[in-house]
Nucleic acid binder design. Structure first.
Length: 263
DNA sequence: ATGGTGGAAAGTCCA
């Protein structure tokens, strides 16, 4: 089975490209972030025609997450337990959706950006990660044999080598010790970040800004990851960061990260 | 030109 995560930066703009990629790579399950649409606006038809079932969560033009699966999609869960709200009045944003696909509990996650260190969005980001870690720990605690994948755009660069020029990120979000601690907490909860384990090489980015020729210069960031439970980790044979998908007109600013599972 | 790109309730917010 092949499962992947991809921040597509608008599902409507990218539907053709997403479908072509799914069919070309033979991907069975895709966790999608930044669909940027409401549920009624999602382009279900082309995916369903290609044999994929769709679970989508979107409230407006911001955020939006989905899971596409051709191996079944059961027990869909919108938001994780105790997922924090943001703003006044507080809104639980569409940043997390879970479903069981081919026996794997897949979560598509779009972690809040944080914006600036002194911004309310940054505190929200840390709280969001802390509550997610608690939920993740509980899932594994309830079933130590569970196959869970926490996949998505984490908006955290865990290592200095995950950003193209660390000197430019001093005092910025994505690299702060608090964010890195919040990210690392998933390891203490019993999960393994399998993409790092199988693709340890530096300068293997998953995101490049649209501006200033960042992609041709390979000035990117590695911020898309997949935390896996022990039972799922044992099945992951290969991880691929599909850098080529950043090329050409109409690309997302993120590329797919792919997990190949045994069996 | 100093947000230089791209996507989204269409005017500004978000990344």
């Amino acid at each position: 089975m092949r499962i992947a995560t991809w921040n597509v930066n608008s599902a409507r703009t990218r539907a053709d490209r997403m479908l072509a990629w799914l069919e070309r790579t033979g991907t069975d399950v895709l966790a999608v972030q930044e669909t940027k649409c409401r549920d009624d606006q999602f382009p279900y038809l082309p995916f369903e025609a290609a044999g994929y079932e769709v679970a989508h969560l979107g409230l407006n033009q911001w955020n939006g997450v989905a899971i596409l699966s051709r191996v079944g999609i059961e027990d869909v869960e919108r938001h994780f337990p105790a997922q924090p709200a943001y703003g006044d009045p507080g809104v639980v944003e569409p940043r997390a959706i879970g479903a069981t696909c081919g026996g794997v509990r897949v979560w598509s996650l779009y972690v809040p950006n944080g914006r600036e260190i002194d911004h309310a969005h940054y505190a929200y980001k840390l709280e969001w990660l802390a509550r997610l870690e608690e939920a993740a720990a509980a899932w594994l605690g309830q079933d130590p044999a569970a196959q869970v994948a926490l996949m998505g755009d984490w908006n955290v660069a865990p290592l200095d080598t995950d950003v193209w020029d660390p000197s430019r990120f001093v005092g910025r979000t994505h690299v702060s010790p608090a964010e890195r601690d919040a990210f690392a907490a998933f390891a203490a909860a019993g999960y393994t970040e399998i993409t790092r384990e199988l693709v340890p090489e530096v300068n293997r980015y998953t995101y490049w800004d649209y501006q200033q020729l960042r992609f041709p210069r390979n000035e990117g960031m590695r911020i898309d990851f997949a935390w896996t439970t022990p039972a799922l980790r044992a099945r992951v044979d290969r991880v691929t960061i599909d850098r080529d998908e950043r090329k050409g007109k109409g690309a997302s600013d993120h590329v797919p990260v792919v997990l190949d599972l045994a069996g």
